[in-house]
Simulated scan of single mutants.
Amino acid sequence: MLLISVPAMLLLTHTAMFPLISLNSFQAEGLYWLTSSGTAPFGVLTVLVLLGLCFRQIPKAHFLPLFITVSISMVSTLALNQFLKPYFSEPRPNAQLLHQQQLLNINEFYQLAPAQRKPVINDAVNQFTTDPHDVQLSPLIANHWRNEVGFAFPSGHTLFAVTLSMVMSYFLLLSGQYLLPSLLCLWSLGMGFSRMLLGMHWSQDVLASTVIGGLIGLACIWGINRCWPRLATLIATLTNTKPLTTP
């Protein structure tokens, strides 16, 4: 509910997060590195680091169900994100800005294949950075704009962060750990803010992605709790070991 409340408030109050901060600042570049924690290949590293931290903080008998739940939830979010983006075909805020500056025709742009969009937006961003504007881009943010050529809805980064945080926090809280779940919550909030402030997503994208990510996380947690007793017995039979306890 905490994760939902922030983008919901922004949406209900019609508060635009872009362009709110200078995109030619250390603050914007800090947000870029935050958002990169959910971007391939750094997203894989994020999962591995968090799994390593969980391995040290939860009972070893609970780590395997955690690993399985994380794996299923991550595959689910990736598949759903790939399906929903072309279905809704929503332009990104930065593409809308370039369109308003007559540097990009978003109707023609999004009809192109993703590989064909990159040279088009590259030219538009190059022109945007050389012309005088209220919105100035650092080279790092400009390069980020060049590489983000997909649709806006939903926010894959928010989906990734919320789902991962929900699943891992469940197992951590069961083990009496509170610090890492709190940090994961802040990371998820920061991820949504970074996507909006950098011009990648609208508030409704982040809100919907938070709801969907939460539902995916809850569904995967419910599924592992229902299936784990039989799955643990099967694993024990195959490995000739004692069955692991239920999370």
Rank of each mutant, 00 (worst) to 15 (best):
L66H: 05
P19N: 10
L31K: 01
A95M: 14
A28W: 03
L140C: 01
A28K: 02
S22A: 14
P19K: 02
F128G: 08
L48G: 08
P86A: 13
L137H: 05
T69K: 03
F88K: 13
Y87M: 13
S36W: 10
L112V: 01
L3I: 07
L64E: 00
H133Q: 14
Q111V: 00
I68T: 11
F63P: 08
Q127P: 03
L10R: 02
T35F: 05
V135Y: 09
T46L: 10
C54F: 04
A28Y: 06
A40I: 13
F55Q: 01
N24P: 08
Q27C: 07
E29C: 13
P86R: 11
L51M: 12
L112C: 02
Q111S: 05
L66K: 04
L3G: 09
A79L: 15
G30Q: 06
Y87A: 15
N126A: 08
V6T: 09
V125T: 07
T77S: 12
Q136M: 14
L45K: 03
V6I: 13
N105V: 05
T39P: 03
P41W: 06
I106V: 10
N81R: 07
N107W: 00
V47S: 09
E108Q: 14
L45T: 10
A28D: 06
V75E: 09
Y32K: 04
H133C: 06
Q100T: 08
V47I: 15
R92L: 05
V47H: 03
L112D: 00
D134Y: 09
H99K: 00
P93I: 05
V6M: 08
L84N: 11
W33R: 02
S36L: 07
L10H: 07
T39Q: 12
G43S: 15
L80V: 14
S73P: 13
T130L: 12
A113M: 04
Q136T: 14
P139I: 08
M17G: 04
P119H: 04
Q82K: 10
I21G: 02
N126C: 05
N107Q: 12
H99Q: 11
L23A: 06
V47E: 08
F18P: 04
S25A: 02
H133T: 14
Q96V: 14
D123M: 09
A8F: 09
L3K: 01
L97H: 05
P91D: 14
L80M: 15
Y110Q: 01
F55H: 12
F109S: 00
T39S: 11
K60N: 04
S76V: 15
I21T: 04
S138Q: 12
L20S: 10
N81L: 07
L103T: 02
I68P: 00
L51T: 06
N122L: 06
P19L: 04
P119I: 01
L80D: 13
I68Q: 01
P132M: 10
F128K: 02
A124H: 06
P86W: 08
L2V: 10
F109H: 03
L11N: 02
V47A: 10
I106P: 05
F88Y: 15
D134K: 07
V6N: 04
P19A: 03
L97F: 07
A113R: 07
H14G: 01
A61S: 10
T129S: 15
L66V: 01
S76G: 09
T129F: 04
D123W: 01
N81P: 03
P86T: 11
L3H: 03
P139S: 11
L98F: 08
L51P: 05
Q101G: 00
L23C: 06
S138Y: 11
V135L: 13
